[in-house]
Computed example of a mutant assay.
Amino acid sequence: MEATVRDADSQRVQVVERAFNLLNVLAGLGGCATAGELKAATGLAGPTVHRLLHTLTGLGVVHQLSDRRYALGANLVPLGESATRQLGGPAVPQMQALVAELGESVNLAAMESEMIVYIGQVPSPHTMRMFTEVGRRAHLHSTGVGKALLAGMDPARVREILTATGMPSLTEKTLTRPEALLEQLPRIAAQGYALDDEEQEMGVRCLAVVVPHGPSPMGLSVSGPTGRMHDGFVRHAVPLMRRTAVEIGRRMSRLSPRRG
């Protein structure tokens, strides 16, 4: 076993690790930073940082702004979209089955950098249906999945996230005060599901549950027009969604690489 670990370590390429670390640090600094800030944050020598930035700029995954700061580049977008679709791919059969049972659009979303990103969708067969673009990012406070995930967190962590991201108002029903959302979270945790009740878009309701044992914090949601997403629909849908979420979590945990 020790020999296997040593062999694996010997195949790691330091410059690749440094490049990815630099990109992660740049993302953590808000996607934009000076070379000096990157040097301080990574602990790398100045010439090394400049060589990495020069190479990454040439590849289009970093670009330099007019004020000489560096920002994440456009060539990262298709890579991210492809990775996002692959992550949601294993859940598609379960999502399709749920659409067949409920008749509304089903979404899968994961928490990433204090936001949620949609990683999969199976649309409703109805002509009037909700469509969410895979790869789209959204705030936690105004989405069903976001609120379901926040309900499982310590209140101090919830406040930290809301302070970092803000609580922008998207409709007249969007919660914009931390206290208002924090009041909802114990009820969401107790009932095991969350609702976005026209908080993202007027006329649209979204029901969400947490996906247990996923590779990252994830949630499953069903969305549709408020007229079809009535309270009776919610009572019928929640047990089916919980069952599907458990199946998705189990499937993804089997497909995730084991550590250690």
Rank of each mutant, 00 (worst) to 15 (best):
R137W: 15
T143D: 04
I116G: 01
H139S: 11
R136H: 15
T143F: 05
Q121P: 03
E133A: 09
H126S: 14
P123E: 11
L149Q: 10
G135H: 13
R136Q: 15
V117T: 13
G146K: 03
M130G: 08
M111K: 01
Y118C: 07
L149E: 08
A148Q: 06
F131H: 09
M130N: 09
V145I: 12
M130S: 11
H139V: 10
P123G: 02
G135I: 12
Q121N: 02
M115I: 00
V145D: 04
P125H: 14
R136P: 09
R129H: 14
S142Y: 07
E112C: 06
G146I: 03
I116V: 09
H126W: 15
S113N: 13
M115C: 06
M115V: 08
T143Y: 07
I119T: 11
M115T: 08
V134L: 13
G135L: 12
V134T: 15
S113R: 11
G144Y: 15
M130L: 10
S142E: 14
K147G: 00
T143R: 05
H126M: 15
A138M: 09
E114M: 05
E112Y: 07
V145Y: 03
V117A: 12
M111H: 01
Q121Y: 05
I116P: 00
T132N: 07
E133M: 02
V134S: 11
P123M: 04
S113W: 09
R129M: 10
I116L: 10
L149D: 08
H139F: 13
G135T: 13
E133K: 00
Q121D: 05
I116W: 02
V117W: 05
G135Q: 13
V145T: 08
G120S: 07
V145K: 02
G120L: 02
I116A: 02
A138S: 11
R129G: 06
M115P: 00
F131L: 11
V145P: 01
H139T: 10
L140F: 07
M111E: 12
M115G: 00
M111L: 10
A148Y: 08
G135A: 12
E112D: 09
V134H: 14
I119D: 02
S113L: 12
Y118E: 04
H141F: 03
H139I: 05
A138K: 00
F131V: 12
